[in-house]
């Protein structure tokens, strides 16, 4: 464990907590893409299948359990409890356009042609693009609530910090996983446009408004 990865995990945790707080306090899922949350749930399910078979550390297990349960809870809140506030008309990104290419790529490009490894690879590729429905929805509505933009900033920062972690592990631990690194870079690059808007607008106290 290094500081980059620890802070990265805490950013990820903060993002998920921020999202749950937003939903619970505002009693609404307005502006949230249920599709992105479904994809994130799928990422955790396919990545943490080894939760019970591969014990790494108490920290690792606790975080996996939290990520799994919170992402499933978020999907539940969006599609059942606060369904009335779900803005389905603007959450129209076709998930199959992400699921099918990621599945095919995971079958073709992976470290080992085994079910666990292919599912792990699929979860890595899917995580890189899972935010697209949410970013697409914001581009359609043209705005995002401030707390939703904090959520996105924390979520985007987590994988950015993981890139630093992979650099660190490459130089100091001789550990390197090209699939995770390339997907992580793609994932972080997808947030760049949002990072720019977040820093120039939200941090100036303005609401996140996309240029019409």
């Amino acid at each position: 464990m290094n500081a980059f990865r620890l802070v990265g995990d805490l950013c990820h945790l903060a993002a998920i907590v921020l999202l749950l707080l937003k939903i619970w306090k505002s009693r609404s899922v307005a502006g949230l893409s249920g599709k992105s949350q479904i994809l994130f749930g799928l990422v955790f399910v396919t990545r943490y299948l080894d939760l019970v078979t591969n014990f790494v550390s108490p920290y690792n297990t606790i975080m996996k359990v939290f990520f799994l349960s919170s992402s499933i809870a978020t999907v539940y809140l969006i599609y059942t409890k606060f369904k009335a506030t779900y803005d389905g008309n603007h959450d129209t990104f076709r998930m199959e356009f992400l699921l099918i290419p990621c599945a095919l790529l995971a079958i073709v490009v992976n470290h080992e042609f085994s079910p666990m490894e292919i599912l792990w690879t699929f979860s890595i590729y899917l995580e890189a693009v899972a935010i697209l429905p949410q970013l697409f929805m914001i581009s359609k509505t043209g705005e995002a609530e401030t707390i939703t933009s904090h959520y996105l900033f924390a979520l985007g920062s987590y994988r950015g910090l993981y890139i630093m972690n992979w650099l660190y592990r490459y130089y100091y631990e001789n550990n390197f996983d090209v699939i995770a690194v390339v997907a992580g870079i793609v994932q972080t690059v997808l947030y760049c446009d949002f990072f720019y808007l977040y820093i120039t607008k939200v941090l100036q106290g303005k609401k996140l408004q996309l240029p019409a």
Partner: peptide
């Protein structure tokens, strides 16, 4: 042995 790098990350 070298722990599989990805398996100890979230």
């Amino acid at each position: 042995e070298k722990k599989d790098p990805k398996k100890d990350e979230l």
